[in-house]
Protein backbone atom coordinates (compact mmCIF):
# COMPACT_ATOMS: atom_id res chain seq x y z
CA UNK A 1 0.00 0.00 0.00
CA UNK A 2 1.05 3.53 -0.52
CA UNK A 3 1.60 6.32 1.98
CA UNK A 4 -1.84 7.92 1.81
CA UNK A 5 -4.80 6.66 -0.21
CA UNK A 6 -8.29 7.96 -0.78
CA UNK A 7 -10.40 5.15 -2.11
CA UNK A 8 -13.66 5.94 -3.87
CA UNK A 9 -14.82 8.51 -1.36
CA UNK A 10 -18.19 10.26 -1.64
CA UNK A 11 -19.92 12.91 0.42
CA UNK A 12 -23.55 13.82 0.03
CA UNK A 13 -25.35 16.83 1.55
CA UNK A 14 -29.03 16.13 1.01
CA UNK A 15 -29.39 15.96 -2.76
CA UNK A 16 -26.02 17.51 -3.48
CA UNK A 17 -23.05 15.29 -4.15
CA UNK A 18 -20.18 17.44 -2.90
CA UNK A 19 -17.62 14.70 -3.46
CA UNK A 20 -18.40 11.91 -5.90
CA UNK A 21 -16.37 8.74 -5.88
CA UNK A 22 -12.95 10.37 -5.72
CA UNK A 23 -9.84 8.20 -5.54
CA UNK A 24 -6.19 9.17 -5.49
CA UNK A 25 -3.07 8.28 -3.64
CA UNK A 26 -0.14 10.32 -2.42
CA UNK A 27 3.36 8.89 -2.25
CA UNK A 28 5.69 9.75 0.59
CA UNK A 29 7.69 12.90 0.04
CA UNK A 30 5.72 14.43 -2.81
CA UNK A 31 3.78 17.64 -3.14
CA UNK A 32 0.31 16.77 -4.37
CA UNK A 33 -2.11 19.52 -5.35
CA UNK A 34 -5.87 19.44 -5.82
CA UNK A 35 -7.20 22.10 -8.17
CA UNK A 36 -10.65 22.89 -9.42
CA UNK A 37 -13.19 25.70 -9.81
CA UNK A 38 -15.04 27.08 -6.79
CA UNK A 39 -17.42 24.58 -5.27
CA UNK A 40 -15.65 21.63 -6.86
CA UNK A 41 -15.40 19.86 -3.50
CA UNK A 42 -11.74 20.47 -2.72
CA UNK A 43 -12.17 21.69 0.84
CA UNK A 44 -14.79 19.00 1.42
CA UNK A 45 -12.12 16.41 0.65
CA UNK A 46 -9.86 18.04 3.25
CA UNK A 47 -12.68 18.03 5.78
CA UNK A 48 -13.22 14.36 5.04
CA UNK A 49 -9.56 13.59 5.54
CA UNK A 50 -9.41 15.46 8.84
CA UNK A 51 -12.63 13.63 9.74
CA UNK A 52 -14.73 16.74 10.33
CA UNK A 53 -17.23 15.17 7.91
CA UNK A 54 -18.22 11.53 7.71
CA UNK A 55 -18.03 10.18 4.18
CA UNK A 56 -21.19 8.73 2.65
CA UNK A 57 -19.09 5.94 1.17
CA UNK A 58 -15.45 5.11 0.48
CA UNK A 59 -12.42 4.69 2.66
CA UNK A 60 -9.28 6.55 3.70
CA UNK A 61 -5.95 4.84 4.33
CA UNK A 62 -2.90 6.39 5.95
CA UNK A 63 0.28 4.35 6.25
CA UNK A 64 -1.66 1.12 5.68
CA UNK A 65 -4.15 1.99 8.35
CA UNK A 66 -7.84 2.53 7.72
CA UNK A 67 -8.59 5.96 9.20
CA UNK A 68 -12.20 6.25 8.00
CA UNK A 69 -13.57 5.64 11.49
CA UNK A 70 -10.91 7.42 13.56
CA UNK A 71 -12.38 10.31 15.62
CA UNK A 72 -11.24 13.77 14.42
CA UNK A 73 -9.09 14.55 17.45
CA UNK A 74 -6.92 11.48 16.88
CA UNK A 75 -6.04 12.37 13.30
CA UNK A 76 -3.35 14.80 14.47
CA UNK A 77 -1.77 12.12 16.60
CA UNK A 78 -1.47 9.82 13.58
CA UNK A 79 0.58 12.50 11.85
CA UNK A 80 -1.83 14.47 9.70
CA UNK A 81 -1.96 18.23 10.34
CA UNK A 82 -3.90 20.86 8.45
CA UNK A 83 -4.47 24.54 7.85
CA UNK A 84 -7.76 26.22 7.02
CA UNK A 85 -8.92 28.27 4.08
CA UNK A 86 -10.20 31.18 6.18
CA UNK A 87 -7.70 30.92 9.03
CA UNK A 88 -8.86 29.29 12.22
CA UNK A 89 -6.34 30.55 14.75
CA UNK A 90 -7.03 31.07 18.44
CA UNK A 91 -7.59 34.81 18.20
CA UNK A 92 -7.28 35.84 21.81
CA UNK A 93 -4.08 34.00 22.55
CA UNK A 94 -0.46 34.80 21.78
CA UNK A 95 1.26 33.25 18.81
CA UNK A 96 3.37 31.14 21.14
CA UNK A 97 0.24 29.75 22.80
CA UNK A 98 -1.20 28.97 19.38
CA UNK A 99 1.89 27.05 18.35
CA UNK A 100 1.94 25.23 21.68
CA UNK A 101 -1.62 24.05 21.02
CA UNK A 102 -0.15 22.54 17.87
CA UNK A 103 1.95 20.39 20.19
CA UNK A 104 -1.17 19.14 21.94
CA UNK A 105 -1.17 15.74 20.27
CA UNK A 106 2.23 15.10 21.87
CA UNK A 107 1.07 16.02 25.37
CA UNK A 108 1.86 13.25 27.80
CA UNK A 109 1.07 14.87 31.12
CA UNK A 110 -2.08 14.14 33.07
CA UNK A 111 -4.56 16.55 34.60
CA UNK A 112 -3.45 16.03 38.20
CA UNK A 113 0.19 16.48 37.33
CA UNK A 114 -0.64 19.71 35.52
CA UNK A 115 -2.74 21.14 38.34
CA UNK A 116 0.22 20.76 40.68
CA UNK A 117 2.77 21.53 37.94
CA UNK A 118 5.03 18.66 38.96
CA UNK A 119 8.61 18.55 37.62
CA UNK A 120 7.55 16.17 34.84
CA UNK A 121 5.19 18.79 33.44
CA UNK A 122 7.95 21.39 33.51
CA UNK A 123 10.27 19.07 31.64
CA UNK A 124 7.63 18.31 29.02
CA UNK A 125 6.83 22.03 28.69
CA UNK A 126 10.48 22.85 27.99
CA UNK A 127 10.61 20.16 25.35
CA UNK A 128 7.45 21.54 23.69
CA UNK A 129 8.91 25.02 23.72
CA UNK A 130 12.15 23.83 22.19
CA UNK A 131 10.27 22.19 19.33
CA UNK A 132 8.12 25.29 18.84
CA UNK A 133 11.22 27.48 18.67
CA UNK A 134 12.58 25.29 15.88
CA UNK A 135 9.43 25.95 13.85
CA UNK A 136 9.55 29.68 14.66
CA UNK A 137 13.12 29.73 13.40
CA UNK A 138 12.17 27.77 10.29
CA UNK A 139 9.36 30.13 9.26
CA UNK A 140 11.00 33.36 10.51
CA UNK A 141 8.28 34.24 13.01
CA UNK A 142 10.53 35.48 15.85
CA UNK A 143 9.07 38.98 15.82
CA UNK A 144 5.56 37.84 16.74
CA UNK A 145 6.28 35.41 19.57
CA UNK A 146 4.29 37.17 22.31
CA UNK A 147 1.84 39.07 20.10
CA UNK A 148 -1.88 38.39 20.24
CA UNK A 149 -3.18 36.88 17.00
CA UNK A 150 -6.07 39.35 16.92
CA UNK A 151 -3.68 42.19 16.14
CA UNK A 152 -1.60 40.53 13.41
CA UNK A 153 -1.92 41.11 9.66
CA UNK A 154 -3.50 38.49 7.40
CA UNK A 155 -0.30 37.40 5.70
CA UNK A 156 1.40 36.69 9.02
CA UNK A 157 -1.58 34.74 10.31
CA UNK A 158 -1.46 32.55 7.25
CA UNK A 159 2.16 31.65 8.00
CA UNK A 160 1.36 31.12 11.68
CA UNK A 161 -1.27 28.58 10.71
CA UNK A 162 1.31 26.65 8.74
CA UNK A 163 3.63 26.93 11.73
CA UNK A 164 0.95 25.58 14.08
CA UNK A 165 0.44 22.61 11.78
CA UNK A 166 4.20 21.99 11.65
CA UNK A 167 4.45 22.07 15.44
CA UNK A 168 2.56 18.79 15.61
CA UNK A 169 5.46 17.20 13.70
CA UNK A 170 3.19 15.71 11.04
CA UNK A 171 4.07 13.22 8.36
CA UNK A 172 1.43 14.63 6.04
CA UNK A 173 0.39 18.27 6.01
CA UNK A 174 -2.83 19.48 4.41
CA UNK A 175 -2.63 23.09 3.21
CA UNK A 176 -6.00 24.59 2.30
CA UNK A 177 -5.30 27.42 -0.15
CA UNK A 178 -2.01 28.56 1.39
CA UNK A 179 -1.75 31.57 -0.93
CA UNK A 180 -5.30 32.93 -0.76
CA UNK A 181 -5.27 36.55 0.33
CA UNK A 182 -1.49 36.87 0.08
CA UNK A 183 0.28 39.39 -2.12
CA UNK A 184 2.86 38.42 -4.76
CA UNK A 185 5.88 38.53 -2.44
CA UNK A 186 4.13 36.61 0.31
CA UNK A 187 3.05 34.00 -2.23
CA UNK A 188 6.67 33.70 -3.32
CA UNK A 189 7.78 33.14 0.26
CA UNK A 190 5.04 30.60 0.72
CA UNK A 191 6.17 28.62 -2.31
CA UNK A 192 9.72 28.47 -0.92
CA UNK A 193 8.44 27.34 2.43
CA UNK A 194 6.26 24.65 0.92
CA UNK A 195 9.28 23.24 -0.87
CA UNK A 196 11.37 23.51 2.29
CA UNK A 197 8.72 21.69 4.28
CA UNK A 198 9.13 18.80 1.91
CA UNK A 199 12.88 18.87 1.40
CA UNK A 200 14.16 19.95 4.82
CA UNK A 201 11.52 18.49 7.14
CA UNK A 202 10.64 15.54 4.93
CA UNK A 203 6.91 16.15 5.27
CA UNK A 204 4.56 15.11 2.50
CA UNK A 205 2.37 17.99 1.33
CA UNK A 206 -1.22 17.72 0.11
CA UNK A 207 -2.66 21.08 -0.85
CA UNK A 208 -5.64 22.81 -2.38
CA UNK A 209 -4.67 25.83 -4.43
CA UNK A 210 -6.06 28.24 -6.99
CA UNK A 211 -2.91 30.15 -7.93
CA UNK A 212 -1.61 28.23 -10.95
CA UNK A 213 1.83 29.82 -10.80
CA UNK A 214 2.29 28.46 -7.32
CA UNK A 215 0.88 25.10 -8.36
CA UNK A 216 3.27 24.82 -11.29
CA UNK A 217 6.20 25.88 -9.19
CA UNK A 218 5.86 23.44 -6.35
CA UNK A 219 3.68 20.47 -7.18
CA UNK A 220 4.85 17.10 -8.36
CA UNK A 221 1.40 15.89 -9.22
CA UNK A 222 -1.96 17.57 -9.66
CA UNK A 223 -5.53 16.34 -9.42
CA UNK A 224 -8.31 18.35 -11.07
CA UNK A 225 -11.85 18.21 -9.69
CA UNK A 226 -15.15 19.56 -10.89
CA UNK A 227 -18.59 19.05 -9.33
CA UNK A 228 -17.02 16.58 -6.94
CA UNK A 229 -15.69 14.33 -9.70
CA UNK A 230 -12.11 13.73 -10.77
CA UNK A 231 -11.41 15.26 -14.17
CA UNK A 232 -7.75 14.46 -14.59
CA UNK A 233 -4.56 13.76 -12.71
CA UNK A 234 -0.87 13.76 -13.54
CA UNK A 235 1.93 16.32 -13.73
CA UNK A 236 0.89 19.99 -13.69
CA UNK A 237 1.53 20.31 -17.42
CA UNK A 238 -0.49 17.22 -18.28
CA UNK A 239 -3.46 18.27 -16.22
CA UNK A 240 -3.52 21.78 -17.60
CA UNK A 241 -3.47 20.43 -21.15
CA UNK A 242 -6.34 18.03 -20.48
CA UNK A 243 -9.41 19.01 -22.53
CA UNK A 244 -11.89 18.40 -19.66
CA UNK A 245 -9.94 20.69 -17.35
CA UNK A 246 -9.81 23.44 -19.93
CA UNK A 247 -13.53 23.02 -20.47
CA UNK A 248 -14.24 23.22 -16.74
CA UNK A 249 -12.26 26.42 -16.30
CA UNK A 250 -13.23 28.17 -19.51
CA UNK A 251 -16.77 26.90 -19.46
CA UNK A 252 -16.59 25.60 -23.03
Amino acid sequence: MSFFTVDGISLQFGGLKAVDNVSFSVTKGEIFTIIGPNGAGKTSIFNLISRLYDPTSGRLFFEDRDITEVPPHQIAKLGIARTFQNIELFENASMLANLLVGRHCHATTGLWQEMLFLPGVRRAEKEHRRKVEEVIEFLDLQAYRDKLIAGLPYGVRKVIEVARALCSEPKLILLDEPSSGLNVEETDDMSFWIRDIRSELGITVLMVEHDMTLVNRVSDRVLALNYGKVLASGTPAEVQAHPDVIAAYLGA
Binding site: H73, I75, A76, A81, F90, A97, R164
Partner: peptide, 18 residues
Protein backbone atom coordinates in the same frame (compact mmCIF):
# COMPACT_ATOMS: atom_id res chain seq x y z
CA UNK B 1 -4.18 25.79 26.36
CA UNK B 2 -6.72 23.25 25.16
CA UNK B 3 -9.41 25.18 27.09
CA UNK B 4 -8.42 28.42 25.40
CA UNK B 5 -8.36 26.65 22.04
CA UNK B 6 -11.94 25.43 22.59
CA UNK B 7 -12.99 28.98 23.43
CA UNK B 8 -11.51 30.47 20.27
CA UNK B 9 -12.10 27.80 17.62
CA UNK B 10 -13.56 24.37 18.20
CA UNK B 11 -12.85 23.18 14.68
CA UNK B 12 -9.19 24.10 14.77
CA UNK B 13 -8.87 22.60 18.24
CA UNK B 14 -10.32 19.34 17.01
CA UNK B 15 -7.87 19.22 14.13
CA UNK B 16 -4.98 19.92 16.50
CA UNK B 17 -5.86 16.79 18.44
CA UNK B 18 -8.02 18.19 21.23
Amino acid sequence: RAFVAIRDSETAGKSMGI
